[in-house]
């Protein structure tokens, strides 16, 4: 579209006025990274700009040798003819939204964000912009999150129930962000047993601890003795571990999955988990709709996820809204 400050490119967004990309999935000379999840941060680019709080985790993900430039939240910096500011996104530790100001106006870009409280990261901060590019992972009104304390209560009830009958409680969750948020939430409660971590979570959790985020003691499954009794314990593992031989050591285990997708019964049943816990690091439908209003922009563009319903709804609310598909730019060339 002519006159747009940003356009889809390389699986992310390209800003010609500043000659940089946001969250590109292919290597580019200069990238602004909203957060360290693999669908936003990839190795191989020249320069990386990211929020200061996110730097240690980003290093874990894209490697040590890259040229990483950190900026504090709220600090302005120039790229080409644009002025950039990073704001806290409330998604995971060090996650950011990006404001780009230029002569054509101010654009706000979300990587992923949420509005619910999270003890591991700074809460989302709205800012004014003319155009708001919003993630739309959960872009249907069926996605509405229950209060976090309710969900943590459910997790603890399940863990206690399992511990009562000597069954290991294996809880699947994403290794970066969700695992640490859960740990941090559990830190505030009485717990029936020990907590074990899958190898994929060790280094990332250490990163969080080093930044002063309070979490209970954890043990590495990889360092457990043969015949370890996990009967009263909670095991955190990435979803990829489900059904793998790695699971065999937890005899007679019960499984749970922590994700916004668990709001829908069919999603849980299809994956065969015993329990689903509805806790997400993304905005739910009310969060997406309210944020679109909070940004006070006249135009909203959905990126990441199926934005058809959200865009349609916002149009009916009187906003200019459309959906962009960033992935298409990958298969096109």
């Amino acid at each position: 579209m002519a006159g747009d400050l940003l356009k889809p490119d390389a699986g992310g967004l390209y800003c010609a006025a500043g000659d940089f990309w946001i969250d590109p999935l292919r290597p580019v000379p200069r990238a602004v990274i909203t957060h360290a999840h693999a669908d936003h941060a990839r190795a191989g680019s020249g320069e990386y700009y990211a929020a200061e709080a996110g730097l240690p985790v980003l290093r874990q993900r894209v490697g040590q040798d890259n040229d990483l430039v950190s900026r504090r939240y709220g600090e302005h910096f120039e790229l080409g003819d644009t002025r950039i500011t990073l704001f806290p996104a409330g998604h995971i530790l060090g996650s950011a939204t990006v404001r780009i100001e230029s002569e054509e106006g101010a654009w706000g870009v979300s990587g992923d964000f949420k509005r619910d409280p999270d003890p591991t990261c700074r809460p989302f901060e709205p800012f004014d912009c003319d155009v708001w590019l919003t993630e739309c992972t959960f872009g249907l009104p069926v996605y509405r999150w229950p209060p976090t304390e309710t969900v943590i209560g459910q997790v603890l009830d399940w863990w206690r129930e399992c511990a009562g009958v000597g069954r290991p409680a294996v809880l699947f969750c994403y290794a970066l962000g969700k695992a640490q948020r859960l740990l941090s939430e559990l830190d505030r409660h009485e717990r029936p047993g020990r907590i074990w971590l899958h190898g994929a979570m060790q280094a990332l959790t250490r990163c969080y601890r080093e930044q002063g985020i309070p979490m209970p003691d954890t043990h590495a499954v990889g360092e457990a003795g043969k015949g370890e009794d996990y009967g009263r314990d909670l095991v955190l593992a990435p979803p990829s571990a489900a059904g793998s031989p790695w699971m065999k050591r937890f005899r007679n285990h019960s499984t749970g999955f922590v994700s916004g997708w668990m709001r829908i019964r069919g999603n849980r049943r299809r994956r065969g988990y015993d329990r689903g816990f509805v806790l997400s690091d993304h905005a739910d439908w009310p969060g997406l709709v309210d944020t679109a209003a909070d940004m006070r922009s006249g135009r909203v563009i959905t990126i990441h996820g199926d934005g058809t319903a959200l865009a349609g709804y916002l149009q009916e609310q009187g906003l200019a809204a459309e959906s962009w598909n960033l992935r298409e730019t990958l298969s096109a060339s």
Binding site: L140, P141, V142, R144, R263, I264, A309, Y313, E316
Partner: peptide, 24 residues
């Protein structure tokens, strides 16, 4: 308090009307 088309989209996504209504 939703437009009818949005309930339909939600139903298509969830695949179960009873659950969709309960969620919405």
């Amino acid at each position: 308090g939703l437009p009818h088309w949005l309930l339909e989209s939600s139903y298509q996504h969830v695949g179960d009307l009873a659950e969709t209504l309960n969620l919405l």
